[in-house]
Design a protein around this nucleic acid. Sequence first.
RNA 1: GGGCGAUUAGCUCAGUUGGUUAGAGCACUUGCCUUACAAGCAAGGGGUCGGGAGUUCGAGUCUCUCAUCGCCCACCA
Length: 843
Amino acid sequence: MLDKKYNHKEVEKGKYKKWLEKEYFQSGDKSKDPYCIVIPPPNVTGKLHLGHAWDTALQDIIIRYKRMDGFDAMWLPGMDHAAIATEAKVVAKLKKEGINKYELGREGFLEKAWEWKEEYAENIRKQWAKLGLSLDYRKERFTLDEGLSNAVKEVFVRLYNEGLIYRGERIINWDPEAKTALSNEEVIYKEVKGAFYHIKYFIEGEDDYLEIATTRPETLLGDTAVAVNENDERYQKYIGKNVILPLLNKKIPVIADQHADPEFGTGVVKITPAHDPNDFEVGERHNLERINILNEDGTMNEKTGKYQGLDRFKARDEIVKDLEKEGLLIKIEEITHNVGHSERTGVMVEPYLSKQWFVKMRPLADRILENQKNKETKVNFVPARYEKTMNHWMEITYDWCISRQLWWGHRIPAWYKGEEVYVGLEKPKGEGWKQDEDVLDTWFSSALWPFSTLGWPNETEDLKRYYPNNVLVTGYDIIPFWVNRMTFQALHFTNQRPFKDCLIHGLIRDKMGRKMSKSLGNGVDPMDVIDTYGADALRFFLTTNTAPGMDLRYDEEKVKSAWNFINKLWNASRFVLMNIEDIDNIDYEGKDLSIEDKWILTKLNETIKTVRTNMEKYEFNNAGGALYKFIWEDFCDNYIELSKSKLNNATTKKVLLKVITDILKMLHPFMPYVTEEIYSKLNVKEAESIMISSYPKYNKKEVFEEKEKLDKVIEDITNIRNLKVTNNITKEAGISLKAEKEVEDIYKNMLKITYENLNKEKEGEKYEYKSPYINIVYFQKGKEIDKNILKTEIEKLEASINKRKKLLANENYVNKAPANVVEQDRKKLKEEEEKLERLKEQL
RNA sequence: GGGCGAUUAGCUCAGUUGGUUAGAGCACUUGCCUUACAAGCAAGGGGUCGGGAGUUCGAGUCUCUCAUCGCCCACCA
C-alpha cells in the first residue's frame, strides 16, 4: 500500500540504479524500428543548469514515449570538451594554485585538463541520473575521444583538399584575455559608452588639415592612409597628397576609396589595415602596408614607440593626452555605441590581423539553403519559424575562423617545413615537419556530433541504423553556433540532413523575466529544485508550461503546483489500490459496464488520442494539459466519486485499474519515478517495469455514446448544487425527486440524498430544478425565494436564443458555413428553448 | 535600417486548419476536516483578447497599420 502522502525522496530512491541494472536504457533490438536522439553535449565546464534540465527533460519525454510505443529507442549521451570555455576554467584553477599555464607546458597542462574533465564528467552523469534521463550509456561519447578525433581530422583534411578550408592572414576577432582568435558568432555586441575623438591630420607642407573622427585613437599608430570619397567635392583636391600622421609625424597618403561615406562623420576615414576589417579591404585595394600595433595580450607592441607595453586602453588615454598637448585634438564627442565582446571571457575583442585557418562558407551555406527548399530532405524546425533563423545566418555568413590559440582541443592536422604546408591525417614522413600549434574551434567537432558519435567515417551498424537522427532538441540561441554547422557538415559529408526534426525551445528566465546569469545571481540549481520538489515535479513544470519555441519563466509556485498534481495522482492511485486487492485481471465484459464506466472509458480514449497527437507534434504543454484535466476532473472528481457506491462490483474495480494503468503509462515519460513506483504496486500489469510497458492506444470499441448522457447528468449535478448554495438550502430541506432509472443513483450519490431527507416534509418554499433526466424539488420552510437569480438566467438565455435565431435566419450563414456547424447551432437552439421552458415554469 | 517574437483574467501562460458562452495554474469570494487527497472538496466572481482599419455569414485566430516591450542581424571610420 502507498503511504498517505507522496514523498518524492522515497519514491526516487534506488530507481535509476535499478533501471540501469535492468538495462532498460539500452538500445539495439533489431526487431523494432530505430528511433534516435543524440544529446546536445554539455560542456565539461561545470554544473548543469535549469536550461539543461529543460532541454534533456524534453528529450527524455520523447525517448521514453517512443520506447514504450514500440521503437528501438536510442538516446546517445556525451559531452563537449568546450575548448576555450574549459581551458579558461582550468587556467583559472591553476592560477589559484599558483601555477602558470605556460610554465606547465602543453603536455602538463593537458594532463590537468583531462583530470578536470573526468571530475566534471562524473558530476554531469550524476545530475543526469537525478533527472532520470534514460540515456544509453554504452554509447556515450566525448568530443575529444579517439573516434571523434578521427572524424574531425578526416573532415579537416577533406575540406582542405576540396579547397573549402584555407589558411590566410585576415582581420579576425581577437580575445586578448584568452589570447585566441574567435569566430564572428563568438562575439557579442554590447552597448558601451565611448567617444568620437576628432583629430587634425595636417596636409604635408600646408597649414590645412583634415578632420578625422575615430573611436579608437590608439589605432592611429597603425594608420597607413587616409581615405575620402572621390565624389566628395570637399576633399577632391587632397587626393594624392600626403598627410602627416599625428604623434608619429609620418607621411601617409590621402587616397580615394568608396569606403569613405561623405554622409558619415567628417567624410574622412583613417585607414588602419591591420586593425579593422573594412580598412583591411581598403588596404588590399590600394596595396597599403599593414602595421600591427598590438601584442597578443592587448598591450601595445614594439612598433608603437613610447607607448610600447601599455595596455590598449591606457595607451588610448595617453595618446589623447598627447594629441591635446600638441593641439591636434579638436573635440571629444561622447557617444554610446556597440562594441564586440568575447562570449567567453567578456573582454572587448580587438580586430586583429592574424594568420588563421578558415572554412570557406559560401558553398556550404548554399547547400543548406538549397536543401531547405526540399520538403522531403530538409530539417523540419518546430516551430517552423526557426528555419528562417538558420536561413538568415546562412545568407549572411562569413568565412568561419576555426583555429584557436589554445591547447585543449583537436590539434590542427597541418604540418609546416619552411614554406611547405602539409595537411593530412598523420604526420608526413621525413625530417623537420612541425605541427601547427593551434587547436580547432570547439564547434568544429560538435558540428559532426550527429554522425561522428555513431562511428562516421566508418560505415558502422549504428550509423546505418540510427542516422539521420530523428530529432534534435536545443535552444534557439544555439542555432547559429551549432544547428547550422551540423546541417552543412551533414549535407556535405553524409549527403543527408543530420536529423529529420529540430525541436527548438526558448531560454529559461527568472520569475521576473530576466535571463538567469551568474552576475545577477538569479540562477536556480535544478538539483536544489529536485531536492525540494522531486525530479518528476521539475520535469512536469519544465515541459508543460509553455508552447514550443517560447521562453519559460522559472516560478517555484508552478513547480509546487506540479507537485500537487503528482500528489493528487498519488492519492487517486492509493484509492484504487485500496479497493482492488482481490482483482487479478482487467478483462471486464462489455455487457457489465455501467454508464459511468462507459463514460470514463470514453473520456480515457479521447484523452489517449489527444495525448498521442500532441506527443507526435512535440506539444507537450497540450499533452500535459489534457492529462491534467482528465486525471483531476474526469477521473478524480467524477469517476472515483461515482465509483464509491459500487466498490463491491468487480467490473468497477477493473475499470478503476484499467484507467489508472493507462494514466500512469501516459504520464510516465513526464514523471518517470512516481509512475514507476505506483505501477510496481499494481496487482495486474503487463511488464515488470512501466518503462517497458506499452503506451496506451486509442480503442474505438471503448468509445460509447452514453458518454453524452452522463455529461449532461454531471452538468445537472453542478446546477443543482449551485441552486442549493445560492439559496442556502440546508440539509434539513425536504426533497422530492423523480429521475430516470439508469441515472437516479448517480444523482442521489453525488447530491448526497439519503432516504431520511427524501420525501421528509413538503412544506415551505419550493426550489425546483428540471432537466430531461431529473426533476428535483427542495422544500424549505420560512424562506423567501430569491427569484432574481432565475430571472437573470432567463434573460441571459433569451438573449442567447435571439442571437442564435438571428444567425440561423441569415441565409449567408446557413448556406456558407459548414453543415455540421449549422447543425450544432440548431441543436443548441433547441436545447436552449427547452431549458427556457423549464426555467419559466419555475418562475 | 532589416527580420522575428510578444501584447489574452490581478500574476504566469495556453488557445491547433477562422466556427457554440475565450481556457488553465496561482491569487480572490463563499461554504465544507464528506474515511484517496485540507498540498483537499463543492459552488462562484473576474478578461471582449494592445489601438485602429479591412476581408468574411462569422476574427483572439487572416490582411494592413500604429503603439509598447523583447530578441536576432546589420551599421557603428
